[in-house]
Amino acid sequence: MKIAFIGQKGIPMKFGGVEKHVESLAVGLAERGHDVYAYTRPWYTPKKLKIYKGVHLISLGSFKTKHLDAISHSFKASIDVLRRNFDVVHYHGVGPALMAWIPKLFKPSCKVVITFHCIDRYHQKWGLLARLALYLGEWAAVHFADDTITVSKTLQNYCADTYSADTIYIPNGVDIVKDTSAEIIKKKYGLTKGSYILFLSRLVKHKGAHYLIEAYNQLHTDKKLVIAGGSAFTDDYVKFLKKQAQYNPNIIFTGNVEGGSREWKELYSNAYLFVHPSESEGLPIVVLEAMSFGLPVLASNIRENMEAIAGGHGFSFKNKNVNDLKKKLEHLINSPKLVNEVGLDAKKYVLENYSWVDIVNSVEHVYQELLSFNVVNSFSGKAIHIR
């Protein structure tokens, strides 16, 4: 099959859950012998990079602003698709889904698949008009696609309840990883095994870093707090976070940490606890990644986070409740045996239930069904997709 991916900033992934998802999926499909193309933005992926791990990269410019970056790039990519003979065009995100009508209308031989990653209009960085556009993007995601994929059961239920839409559940995934000793992070930040609490995400308001900093400032602990991530057109919010932390020398801002890098692995491998205080998610890849390292997770009790740590494979606090977050942090800092046991159980659970091998198989199966191919189960993994 000849497959195109639209909506991601680019690959290889530097930051971003969608980018991690697309990279793993695209590379996995290319390894299976498919002809895979990913559209990239030159500010994220260098234009000179034409192929990555068997995936062809098509660089197109965008209007790099908060409101126009994704939609302008998706429009250009959708137009470019018309001159190429793709079997499947796969959009990622409800914003890019607004452009899915283009191949649907002008390239009817091509099948359109859309992955619904998150209810983006809930994110606080968007104004009224942007939220309206993202609401229309949700509608497009379930009406323009030949098949719509949701990355969590919570999103699948949302699409059914809000749009009476039948979608396919195929989650995010994780790779098998090895622990990495603290070398770079010790030299740069003075961090050692178990000496810090980790937050790793883009610094956008709905990820909730401000709740964590406020709660941490009320603790009496020798464990440091590491805020790993950078701005995503949110410079004012980053300034606010640094002002929150200005009188606490134990709060460390690393800036962007490239996914898959040595520093990224070290941060996950050596943290005592991972905290994810997000207000809105799809199915958080960072939570699954932390679990894959055997790192225990404390997350806000929104449904998407609770789905990830279901069955006692993590800890939770009341969403947006700084006092409850503080109490849970105090309890877990003083319960190292419990923290270690839950982390080890979480690692086993996530590797059994969120394997990229199974996810690639399931997405491939969706494509094959749409194209009326004879489906042959050619691997030993299990299918994940659920209608």
Rank of each mutant, 00 (worst) to 15 (best):
A133L: 15
V257C: 09
M291C: 13
L29G: 15
E279R: 00
E258V: 06
A310L: 10
S378H: 13
L273W: 03
K318T: 03
A308Q: 05
P42I: 08
I227M: 05
A140T: 01
P171H: 08
E19S: 09
H385Q: 09
N256V: 00
N217K: 15
T154K: 09
T150V: 11
H123K: 15
E281P: 11
F240S: 02
V55W: 07
G127F: 03
L338I: 14
K47T: 15
G93E: 13
F240I: 05
H90Y: 02
A26H: 14
A308D: 13
R41A: 10
L225C: 06
H73E: 01
S300R: 12
A30V: 08
L212D: 02
K47H: 13
V177S: 02
L283S: 05
V174T: 05
Q246M: 11
V376M: 05
G230R: 07
L332E: 01
D179L: 13
F274S: 03
S300E: 06
V322A: 15
G28Q: 08
E279C: 08
W43E: 11
A140S: 10
A133I: 11
E307S: 11
D222Q: 07
P249W: 06
P171Y: 04
F293K: 04
S62W: 05
G28K: 08
E19Q: 15
F75V: 00
Y135K: 14
N319T: 15
H220P: 00
L60R: 07
T180R: 06
S372N: 13
V375A: 12
E258F: 12
F75Q: 00
K320P: 01
T65L: 03
K107T: 01
S231H: 02
G259M: 07
L370W: 03
L344H: 04
I102F: 04
E23R: 00
L344V: 04
K14G: 09
S355N: 07
K193I: 08
K186V: 01
K188F: 09
L98M: 08
W264I: 05
D236Q: 14
V366S: 00
A182K: 02
R202E: 06
W139T: 01
H67M: 12
H365A: 07
A209W: 08
V376Q: 12
T221C: 04
E266H: 01
R262M: 12
F317V: 10
K20Q: 00
V27P: 02
H117T: 07
G173D: 10
T65N: 11
I185Y: 00
K107F: 07
Y272S: 12
Q246Y: 09
P249N: 11
G312D: 04
G17N: 10
A26L: 13
S62F: 06
N250R: 10
V275Y: 06
I149G: 05
V342P: 02
P103N: 14
G173C: 12
S300T: 12
K20Y: 07
S278N: 07
A130H: 06
G17P: 01
H67W: 11
H21V: 09
N340E: 08
N256S: 05
K50S: 12
F116V: 00
S164P: 03
Y39H: 08
